[in-house]
Amino acid sequence: MPPTPQETAEQRSDLLDSLFARLHTARDASNAEVLQEAVWQLWMRSGSPTIDVLVGQAGRAMTAKQYQKALTILDTVVEIDPDFPEGWNKRATVLYLLGDHERAIADIERALDLEPRHFGALAGLGMILRSEGDKKGALDAFKRALEINPFLDSAKDAVRILDKEVGRAI
């Protein structure tokens, strides 16, 4: 018999727990990269073939810089499955690219409610807050992302710069 949806969700959760534990103790960036990719692959799977196809279409639209099209698709994704964290995270990315930071932040917060370890969403939050001049908020977001995934080079660079800038402002 195939696993029940609850059994599948529990297996997915256990696998994510294991990957995050291993990511925290990874010896080097190469090892961490493999683990990060495995996490992203799990995050991208909604459990619904329909949602997965829509997310793929949205990704292709984003690559083609067809942000309004991607937004329309991702609106559908979060409407169909409001408990799919990556739907919210992807839509936040598109909203950021469209300049709608307020809605992007709201979507990131929803993604983080569903998956508090979403280091990509935290790094995205840091980028948005930094672009809005909230250096302390950005610094906090980047640090939270690094607590989960200590191998995010862009977050490390941002923390190094923001630490100095926030320190001078105090």
Rank of each mutant, 00 (worst) to 15 (best):
G47C: 09
V53P: 00
A106V: 07
E165C: 09
R144Q: 14
L15P: 00
G126Y: 07
Q11L: 09
L122K: 14
K156N: 03
L139D: 10
D75P: 02
A158V: 05
I105H: 08
D83W: 04
E7C: 03
L54W: 09
A92N: 11
L19S: 07
R160W: 03
G87L: 02
L74C: 02
N149D: 13
A58V: 01
I161R: 14
V166T: 12
L95Q: 15
E7M: 06
H118R: 09
L98T: 07
P2L: 11
I80G: 08
F119R: 01
F142V: 04
F142C: 08
D100Y: 08
G120Y: 00
H118W: 11
R45D: 01
L35C: 03
D113C: 05
P116F: 07
D83S: 14
A158C: 05
I73N: 00
G133H: 06
L112K: 05
S18H: 11
V159Q: 13
G59P: 00
S13E: 13
L71A: 09
R45Q: 10
A123S: 12
L97P: 05
S30T: 14
L146P: 12
Y96M: 13
E147P: 04
I148C: 12
A9S: 11
D140V: 15
A32Y: 06
D14Y: 01
D100C: 05
E33P: 07
W43S: 00
N149V: 11
L129H: 10
L162R: 07
S18L: 12
L74K: 02
L152G: 07
I105A: 04
P85C: 11
E79A: 10
K156Q: 13
V34L: 15
A123T: 13
R103D: 11
R22A: 14
E165I: 14
L152V: 11
V94Q: 08
L129E: 15
I51V: 15
E33N: 13
M62E: 08
L16H: 02
L125K: 15
D100T: 02
P150K: 12
Q68L: 10
V78S: 05
D14E: 09
P5Y: 11
Q6G: 02
I148M: 09
M44Q: 12
P82D: 10
R45F: 01
H118S: 08
M44K: 03
S154K: 05
L19P: 06
L114D: 08
D163M: 14
D134Q: 13
G99H: 04
E132Y: 03
F151C: 05
A38E: 15
V55Q: 01
F119I: 02
L112Q: 08
L19M: 10
E10K: 11
L19H: 10
T76K: 14
K65I: 00
